[in-house]
Design a binder for these strands. Structure first.
Length: 676
DNA sequence: TTTAGGG
DNA sequence: CCCTAAA
């Protein structure tokens, strides 16, 4: 029996808690999360190998600072006109390398503050700080591309001009495929938000707004064929765009929770980055970057003087970028925790290559994964000229496609903040754990251990068909082969983006400005949000279609992986996004506690937050704890959204009441038990 | 799984 | 919010 006594408590009526549940059969809590970090990955070998042999025409990818600078300038000039809605802001002239231009821009937006603050913080945390050129570059590129797209026709030409300069610099370039992109846009319901001006169209490609809750699925992005600035015959692989679907966890869902005024970025990649929590409302379509990094034979050697410095810079950049990322706290945290290191290192040297390699544990896994996660990019590898020495293969990668990114940003955000957001997203992707995939004649080369010779990559005729892809971190989608848990994956996880849904369970919640936009998503709160897995699957499927070359694998991989993937990788180590309780939620909580008392959090949850999946009874309990604390401290000491004093008073009253009750009950309990 | 608390 | 010991 359960004894419930009705107390006279003034409130609606408190009830004595039912008999302690303690009696319930105890369950084993067993789940232990273990986090495994696995460094060992062989996958990367292949890349490394290639990288080692790649010769970059230009300079090393890291591009010397000056080059980068040039590039920026070039881009700017060429691509941007002042009038265009989006301007690419090149970094300040010389300073490009040093600072992230974006940040500068950002200043305008509310975000800025956060950014600035954060960055330092991160730095401290990570201990790594540096300016990065990279970020800037990316940003600029991206912007440019977007712009380019708008302009389309003209665009191309412009770019080229610019690009030429850029290239030399060895920087990344974007290509825009106008046509394709446009199409995509069409397909997508999305609208470009970013640009305000009519001219904004360019944005479209880059940024797509999705009407739907971002969390879920991005529409399949159509494949796009990247154009290469180079003019080189573009082989376009119709790679599918990676659509990334953001997976959101239930928990993450509510956007309302998002407090970040600024923007949150989600990584499109399903991958496990722990980093991201953010969910995105707006999507940036992935863009293609062009990377014109040039690698020298020796990775080590990249020590060409210039390069070397670059190397460092790059590394720094990445780190910094991370630090800067807007990514919500959680994300950052994740980053920090995880594996930042891994990735960074890789990148630093080789640029993308490394990073990926590192992240990826195994090639095979990667490829598979990639399918699942995103197919990311097609490689633009144009042609590689072929080896001068018998033993070396020269490859020139003209562009990389960036995985699709989802970005959430308030309409009120400034262009500068948008830029930054995009940059951060890109950075996150890169830094987070992009994997490099190698395609040969459209097929993925899975075996990392094979030599170029063995794979045929070194053959002249093959070079043309050699492609590289940037893939989301596999970690998310562990290859079927790997046991789900396989430690390997973990490393990848780092990257895994967390997505956050904007929607707040109880609509009431969303305090944020975005809210309006988010409003649509509210439902997503309720878990309606598709699971990442699903998304990935779909996406992958789509992608696969799009991708001519690599289709099967990806599909398969997807198919296999999907189900499990999410849960595990995702969860592992992932910290839920912070979702401050809204006043309405607090009110509901208080009311429920008044009625049910403390100690019955499950009931409270069921009663008042049954539809708020992201609020667990533990959360409610914790919230109550904090409410009690908050109620006891002076208003000046309180932080966050102010809770009406009235509620706090109720909290104290109820808390006192139930505490007393509990005490009584304890005394009586023995009897009760007997009775029962 | 749920509670209860510390971190 | 997370993590965990206890129940």
């Amino acid at each position: 029996m359960v004894l419930q006594k009705r107390l006279d408590y003034g409130f609606n009526g408190y009830q004595v808690p039912a008999t302690p549940r303690a009696t319930r059969s105890a369950r084993r809590r067993g789940a232990i999360r273990k986090r495994v970090d696995d460094n060992s990955m062989g996958a990367f070998d292949l890349l490394a190998t290639i990288a080692g042999k790649l010769l970059l025409e230009g300079e090393s990818s890291p591009a010397s600072s000056h080059t980068s600078k040039d590039q920026c300038a070039g881009t700017k000039e060429n691509c941007l006109d002042g009038d265009k809605p989006l301007k690419v802001e090149p970094c300040d002239q010389g300073s490009c390398d040093r600072r992230i231009p974006v940040s500068d821009h950002i200043s305008q937006g509310p975000n800025q503050s956060s950014c600035s603050k954060e960055s330092p913080v991160h730095q401290n945390e990570s201990s790594v700080m540096t300016t990065s050129n990279c970020s800037e570059r990316f940003a600029s590129d991206i912007l440019v591309s977007g712009k380019c797209k708008n302009e389309t026709g003209s665009f191309t030409s412009k770019i080229e001009a610019g690009s030429s300069g850029c290239r030399e610099a060895g920087e990344f370039k974007l290509d825009g495929e106008v046509k394709t992109l446009i199409k995509d846009e069409t397909n997508k319901s999305a609208k470009v938000l970013i640009g305000t001006g009519p001219g904004m169209c360019g944005l479209e490609d880059p940024v797509v707004w999705e009407g739907e809750p971002p969390a879920l699925v991005s529409s399949d992005s159509s494949t796009k064929v990247p154009m290469y600035v180079d003019h080189i015959p573009q082989r376009s692989f119709p790679t599918s765009r990676d659509d990334v679907k953001v997976v959101s966890r239930d928990d993450d869902e509510n956007s309302s929770g998002c407090t970040h005024p600024v923007t949150s970025i989600k990584y499109s990649r399903p991958a496990p980055s722990r980093i991201g929590d953010r969910r995105i409302r707006k999507i940036l379509a992935s863009k293609y970057w062009k990377v014109a990094p040039k690698l020298k034979d020796d990775i080590h050697s990249n020590s060409y003087r210039d390069q070397k410095p670059n190397y460092h810079n790059r590394k720094n950049c990445y780190k910094r970028q991370r630090s800067q990322m807007n990514i919500p706290f959680k994300k950052r945290k994740l980053f920090d925790r995880n594996a930042v290191l891994n990735i960074d290192e890789g990148i630093s040297r080789e640029g993308f290559f490394d990073s990926r390699g590192k992240g990826i544990t195994g090639d095979a896994s990667c490829s598979k994964m990639q399918g699942a996660a995103m197919k990311s990019s097609s490689l633009a590898g144009q042609h590689s000229s072929f080896q001068s020495r018998s033993s070396h293969v020269k490859l020139r990668i003209k562009s990389f496609r960036v995985p699709e990114l989802f970005i959430e940003i308030p309409d009120t955000a400034t262009v500068g903040s948008l830029k930054k957001t995009v940059m951060d997203a890109v950075t996150a992707v890169l830094g987070g754990g992009v994997c490099v995939g190698v395609l040969l004649q459209g097929k993925k080369v899975r075996d990392d251990n094979k030599t170029l010779q063995q794979t045929g990559i070194s053959q002249d005729n093959q070079l043309d068909s050699l492609g590289f892809t940037l893939e989301p971190n596999p970690s998310q989608t562990p290859p079927p082969l790997c046991s789900g848990d396989s430690p390997r994956m973990l490393p990848c996880n780092v990257l895994q983006p967390l997505t956050r849904y904007p929607s707040g369970p109880t609509s009431e919640a969303s305090p944020e400005p975005h809210t309006a936009s988010l409003g649509n998503f509210i439902e997503s709160d309720h878990d309606s949000a598709p699971s990442p897995t699903d998304m990935s699957a779909e996406k992958s499927t789509t992608d696969s279609k799009a991708l001519v070359a690599v289709p099967d694998m990806s599909v398969e991989a997807l198919a296999v992986v999907p189900g499990h993937r999410k849960s595990k990788r995702f969860d592992i180590g992932q910290r839920r996004i912070r979702r401050p309780f809204s006043v309405a939620e607090v009110e509901a909580l208080v009311q429920a506690v008044e009625k049910l008392g403390t100690g019955r959090w499950r009931d409270v949850k069921l009663r008042a937050f049954d539809n708020a999946k992201h609020r667990t009874y533990v959360d409610l309990k914790d919230k109550w704890k904090t409410l009690v604390h908050t109620a006891r401290i002076s208003p000046q000491q309180r932080r966050g959204e102010p809770v009406p004093q009235e509620l706090l008073d109720r909290v104290l009253t109820a808390h006192a009441y139930w505490s007393q009750q509990q005490a009584k009950q304890q005394l009586k309990q023995p009897e009760t038990c007997l009775l029962v």
